[in-house]
């Protein structure tokens, strides 16, 4: 049932939608990454987009931020169609979005302080004392005020991600996009990030889009979840509804079963045929 639910009927009750995706299609070479995807992301909520690796979750974020151009369909952010914007208008729009990259994407030749100060220095004319206060406040929010003089290569992965988060919220954006924030983190930093994301979202009134395949952590903080696979949305709703979803695919993903609709084996001829084949490639 849920597999065929369209975005429209679930969302019709809410009209405060900040990101509206309609009929999104994107191909990379011959591979179809998205096929006619519709999504709505409501203001003030944490929306998680989940799916196994390689389903184009990062691509989705790049499409929303206008770094990639879709083959078909539209993406509206706060009423503005991202891919119809002029370059300067797109850059203006991006100042209202923050993105946390998987690697952190800190500028390696700048200190933690300068990294967080970077967007402020680029886009504002704040006096140095004001700038310093702002940066320290942002660093305090992620608990790294004491690490301001460290260089990025002196940070652990989790700290780097938190610094990147401080940088992403430096310009007080409306929308923060998180690309796999939990991947490769130890349980402690995972826990920190989970609380941080939720806390920031509620305290500052952000809207968060979270792309992840870590089911447990994501289910903890998300208000809404989308599960995508093979270019289509196969389930959506609050985490509780998804967890109760009966479809085989969603079950396999949520429960982490090794085999199911998604096969353990990559597509291949039968093993016996392959082993007995005389021509060696």
């Amino acid at each position: 049932m849920t597999e065929n639910a369209s975005a429209g009927d679930l969302r019709s009750q809410s009209d405060d939608i900040i990101v509206k995706i309609r009929g999104l299609s994107f191909r990379r070479g011959r591979l179809v990454v998205f096929d006619q995807v519709d999504m709505d992301i409501r203001r003030g909520e944490v929306t998680a987009v989940m799916g196994p690796s390689g389903t184009g979750k990062t691509t989705l974020l790049k499409l929303i931020t206008g770094q990639l151009r879709p083959d078909a369909g539209t993406i509206e952010v706060d009423g503005e169609s991202v891919h119809a914007l002029e370059r300067s208008a797109l850059y203006r729009l991006r100042r209202r979005m923050g993105m946390l990259f998987q690697s952190g994407a800190l500028l390696t030749d700048l200190s933690v302080f300068d990294n967080v100060a970077y967007p402020l220095r680029e886009h504002t004319n704040l006096p140095p004392s004001m700038l310093r206060k702002l940066v320290l406040l942002k660093l305090e929010a992620v608990g790294l005020r004491g690490a301001r003089d460290l260089m990025p290569n002196e940070l652990s992965g989790g700290m780097a991600r938190r610094v990147a988060l401080a940088r992403a919220i430096a310009l007080d954006p409306d929308l923060v996009l998180y690309d796999e924030p939990f991947t490769g983190q130890d349980p402690i930093s995972k826990g920190m990030l989970v609380t941080l994301i939720r806390h920031l979202n509620d305290a500052v009134g952000l809207t968060s889009i979270l792309v992840s395949h870590d089911v447990a952590e994501t289910a903890q903080i998300a208000d809404q979840m989308y599960v995508i696979s093979h270019g289509e949305v196969i389930a959506q709703g609050p985490p509780a509804a998804i967890a109760a979803d009966g479809s085989a695919w969603v079950r396999q993903f949520m429960d982490g079963l090794p085999d199911g609709p998604v096969h353990f084996h990559y597509e291949a001829p039968a093993l016996v045929d392959d082993l007995l084949a005389r021509r060696v490639r």
Partner: peptide, 17 residues
């Protein structure tokens, strides 16, 4: 390396060309 470590994308997301 800046490209590989997403620093260039990061700049772009900070609305810096």
């Amino acid at each position: 390396l800046m490209k590989a470590t997403e620093q260039l994308s990061g700049l772009e997301m900070m609305a810096v060309d």
